[in-house]
C-alpha cells in the first residue's frame, strides 16, 4: 500500500480528529499515514489496558501495543469493514498478547481450551455487603491498582474472557469468535471470573472497610 500523500476524497476536507474510524480506515487504505496515527491516538489507552490485563506485565503490554498497531497497519488493506475497526484491533491485540503470554510462560502451558474445573458454588465464600460508593474510599489510582491486580490474579482463561466481555464490552458471540472457543465456554468462564473477582474485591470494598483508614487516630 502507499505510505504517504493525501488521497483526493471528500472526507479529506474534514480534520482527521473529526473523522469517524471508518473514514480514517479508508484514508489509511488510500495511503494517508496521518489517518492511522489518529486511529492509534484514539485507541492506544484502551489497547494498552487490554494488553496489560492479558499479559499481566507492563513491559510486555507495551510491546504488544506496538506490535498490534503495526500488524493492523500492515493488514489494513485486508480490513473489509464487516466489523468495527476497534473490534478488529481488539482481535489482533488479543492474539499478540496471548502469543506473548505463551512465550513468557513457556514452562507453563497457557491454554484457552482447558475445561472449567469445579463447582461455581465453591467460589462463593465471602458474604459481606459492600460500601455504596467504594470509589470514595480509595483514590482513582488506588482503585485502578486494586482492580488491575484482581484481574491479573485470575488464570488467563478466566481473565481473558472477563476483559473482553466486561471491560471491552464485546458480545458473548464476539468473545467466542475472538478466542476461538464455544459460546457455552465463554459463559461458564465468565461466571467463574465474575465470582472470583467479586470475592477478591470484597476484601477491599466491604462495608466498614473504609473506616479502617482512621483506625490509627
Amino acid at each position: 500500500m502507499a505510505t504517504s500523500g493525501t488521497p483526493p476524497s471528500a472526507e479529506s476536507a474534514l480534520p482527521l480528529a473529526e473523522m469517524d474510524d471508518a473514514a480514517l480506515v479508508a484514508q489509511t487504505q488510500a495511503g494517508n499515514v496521518d489517518a492511522f496515527a489518529e486511529l492509534m491516538r484514539r485507541h492506544d489507552r484502551k489497547i494498552l489496558r487490554l494488553a496489560r490485563h492479558i499479559t499481566g506485565n507492563q513491559e510486555d503490554a507495551e510491546d504488544v501495543l506496538q506490535e498490534s498497531f503495526l500488524n493492523a497497519f500492515s493488514h489494513i488493506g485486508n480490513f473489509a469493514g464487516n466489523s468495527k475497526f476497534y473490534t478488529w484491533l481488539v482481535r489482533i491485540t488479543v492474539n499478540q498478547a496471548l502469543m506473548k503470554l505463551r512465550k513468557r510462560k513457556s514452562d507453563k502451558q497457557v491454554s484457552l481450551d482447558e475445561p472449567v474445573q469445579g463447582d461455581t458454588d465453591d467460589l462463593v465464600r465471602e458474604i459481606a455487603v459492600w460500601d455504596e460508593t467504594p470509589e470514595r474510599t480509595y483514590s482513582q489510582e488506588e482503585m485502578r491498582r486494586i482492580l488491575d491486580d484482581a484481574i491479573e490474579s485470575l488464570e488467563p482463561i478466566y481473565r481473558t474472557v472477563f476483559v473482553l466481555r466486561d471491560v471491552e464490552e464485546l458480545s458473548t458471540e464476539e468473545t467466542a469468535q475472538t478466542l476461538d472457543i464455544s459460546v457455552p465456554a465463554v459463559k461458564s468462564r465468565l461466571l467463574r471470573a465474575r465470582l472470583q473477582l467479586r470475592e477478591k474485591l470484597t476484601k477491599f470494598f466491604r462495608r466498614g472497610k473504609g473506616d479502617d483508614a482512621f483506625a490509627f487516630l
Partner: peptide
Amino acid sequence: TTKKTLQVY
C-alpha cells in the same frame, strides 16, 4: 456485589 463488580470495572 457481583453487579457492583461489573460497575466498578
